[in-house]
Simulated assay, not measured.
Amino acid sequence: MSESRQEQLADALLHIAGSRGLDQVSVREVASTAGVSIGAVQYYFSTKDEMLAFAFRQVVERTRARIARLDATAEPRQSIRAALRQLLPLDARRLAECRVYLAFAARSLTSPVLADIQRETLSAIRDELRLALDEALPATSGQPGPAPEREARLLLALVDGLMFDAVTAPDAMPPAETAQALDTYLERLLPPEH
């Protein structure tokens, strides 16, 4: 299979999902948007679910690739902040990705294939956050600090909630306020060193 052709078809699907919703995605619509025949789409994806799963993985992989390119030498709080900002709709590209991600997450409630991708994605993010927090969380006065596993779950829940609010109520939660909410939580969790 030609990976670039599959990615072209995934881009078409993501465009449709981001602008008109996941319910508007069909083999015919993807073919039309990509400028190819229906047969070309069916050559790469035998079912709509297979096409949706590939596109969902593309959203996840593209975001993870962007996070991987971030400065790994930054101090832990700044690294965590920069990575989590990639999951929030702080610019047009990330807004489109977040809209698509939320559509896929909602559809995962009724699609076992998409549910598996959603579960894998959340688990991987939580694990990476836990590892980063394990290194970054301070112990205070000889007392153990916050539990990295619990804090990773809470931090991911915060980011998911901010994403949902910013996508569904953008006037009530504009990008600057979304970023500030994340920063406020991180400052409480990981106070700046003086």
Score class of each variant (00 low, 15 high):
R99Y: 08
L52R: 01
R130I: 07
S37R: 06
C98E: 01
E149Y: 05
Y44H: 15
G145P: 09
D11Y: 03
Q24R: 14
L182T: 03
L190W: 01
A17L: 06
P112A: 07
P138D: 12
L9W: 05
Q42F: 12
G142D: 07
H15K: 05
A124P: 03
E61R: 12
R66M: 10
G18A: 08
P192C: 03
V25R: 00
Q8N: 08
A115H: 12
A96W: 06
P191H: 06
Q78Y: 08
A83T: 00
S108M: 09
H15I: 10
T178K: 01
P175L: 04
A169E: 13
I67H: 09
L154F: 08
A124C: 04
A157P: 04
R28A: 07
R62Y: 01
T63Q: 12
L131F: 09
R5M: 11
A172C: 12
R119V: 14
A40S: 12
T110M: 13
Y43G: 01
L133I: 05
E50D: 10
R5T: 14
V27Y: 02
E151S: 13
E29Q: 12
L189N: 03
L129Q: 04
P192I: 00
L186N: 01
T140K: 09
A115R: 15
A31H: 02
V27A: 10
R188W: 12
R85H: 10
Q143W: 15
R150L: 12
V113W: 12
R94G: 06
A17M: 02
L155G: 00
A172M: 15
A147N: 15
P138K: 13
A55I: 00
A106Q: 14
Q180V: 07
Y185P: 00
T168S: 13
S111G: 06
M1A: 14
P170H: 06
I38V: 15
A34M: 09
A12Q: 01
A169R: 14
L102F: 08
M173E: 10
A74Y: 03
L190C: 02
V25D: 03
E75C: 08
S26W: 03
S4H: 11
M173S: 15
L95W: 11
H194N: 09
L70V: 08
V41W: 00
F104Q: 07
Q78G: 12
S141A: 15
T184N: 13
T73V: 15
T184Q: 11
A147Q: 14
G35W: 02
D116Q: 14
D165F: 13
D160M: 11
E7C: 11
R64K: 15
V36G: 06
H194R: 10
A136R: 00
R64I: 14
L189H: 00
Q6G: 10
T178V: 09
V41C: 06
Q42V: 07
Q58W: 05
H15A: 08
L189A: 02
S37P: 08
G18S: 07
T73H: 15
P146A: 13
L70E: 06
S108I: 05
M163G: 08
D171K: 07
L109Y: 11
S2Q: 12
E29K: 11
F56I: 02
R62F: 03
L88D: 04
E149M: 06
A103R: 04
P146K: 15
H194A: 13
E50F: 00
P89S: 04
L131Y: 11
Y101H: 13
A132S: 13
F54C: 02
L87P: 09
T73G: 14
I67L: 12
P112Y: 08
A34G: 05
Q143M: 15
